[in-house]
């Protein structure tokens, strides 16, 4: 009975922590994320056609902390900031995507809500049972 009570409290407490984390973590990363377009620079393309090179993938919100990766003063589609693909590859930078953080935060959020509900129901049920036994 005591073990069940501890388990219920752990579930509810852990769920509550998870719930807070699922809001706090994306909230921490969100301001650091920027709309980024990776570009593979090509000198020939620039000199012949005036374009910087090939866009790699489409613009997406990423977290890149290394300022040297950015091509200053240049913007891509939808006002995205241009980042050198060569620099990312050479420095083995695999940028964190905001959508990935948001996705996992959402998974944690739903799991935490479940844990809080199960834990709270467990605590309530155990208390009621204890009260009935005392009476």
């Amino acid at each position: 009975m005591k073990a069940l009570t501890i388990l219920a409290w752990l579930l509810a407490g852990g769920g509550l922590l998870g719930l807070i984390g699922s809001w706090a973590v994306p909230a921490w990363y969100r301001p650091q994320a920027q709309l980024i377009q990776r570009v593979q620079l090509n000198e020939a393309e620039y000199k012949l056609f005036g374009t910087l090179g090939d866009y790699v993938g489409s613009p997406q919100k990423m977290i890149i902390s290394d300022p040297k990766a950015f091509l200053e003063g240049k913007t891509g589609p939808n006002g995205s900031k241009l980042v050198s693909e060569d620099y990312l590859v050479q420095n083995k930078i695999y940028p964190l995507q905001l959508q990935t953080i948001e996705f996992f935060a959402e998974m944690v959020r739903y799991s935490s809500i479940g844990a809080v509900l199960v834990g709270a129901l467990g605590i309530a049920w155990l208390r009621r049972r204890r009260r009935l036994l005392v009476d």
Binding site: Q40, N42, E43, A44, D54, V56, G57, S58, Q60, Q97, Q99, T100, F103
Partner: peptide, 16 residues
């Protein structure tokens, strides 16, 4: 440096 083929996959989890 003069040729590039790429394929992009977009899902809710990640874009690669």
């Amino acid at each position: 440096k003069h040729k590039l083929a790429q394929v992009e996959s977009k899902t809710a989890v990640e874009t690669f």
